[in-house]
């Protein structure tokens, strides 16, 4: 017998993705990889929005709209972050965060 995909399954998926993103953010040394981890976190939240919209409140489209805006904002954020990374690359000739520690306690 085929089992239905419930809200719980989707929430599990999105939570797992979110924490993979957090893990990547905290452990990766490469700036682009850090950026990818952030994108992963944002997109896992998008899954949440769409899932809640579909399963719990299908009469209004609030969640879907939110998801569209999050994608747009994430793109803007990534553009700025990459511009800054390129600027840093000009100084270091590499994009490893361990080179970016001029200021410390």
């Amino acid at each position: 017998m085929m089992q239905q995909i419930t809200l719980q399954h989707i929430l599990l998926l999105s939570t797992a993705l979110f924490f993979i993103g957090v893990f990547g953010l905290l452990t990766r040394r490469n700036m682009i990889a850090i950026l990818m981890s952030i994108e992963l976190m944002l997109n896992s939240v998008n899954i949440n929005f769409v899932a809640f919209n579909k399963y719990l409140y299908p009469e209004k489209l609030d969640g879907v709209f939110f998801f569209l805006f999050v994608i747009t904002v994430a793109a803007a954020e990534a553009a700025v972050a990459i511009a800054i990374i390129i600027h840093l690359y000009r100084y270091n000739k590499q994009i490893d965060v361990s080179e970016t520690e001029e200021m410390r306690y």
């Binding site: 700036m31 954020e77 972050a81 800054i84 840093l88 100084y91 970016t100 520690e101 001029e102 200021m103």
Partner: peptide, 12 residues
């Protein structure tokens, strides 16, 4: 360079 470093830390 410090300024770019600050910007990167801020955006992350």
């Amino acid at each position: 360079k410090q300024s770019s470093e600050a910007a990167f830390k801020f955006i992350v």
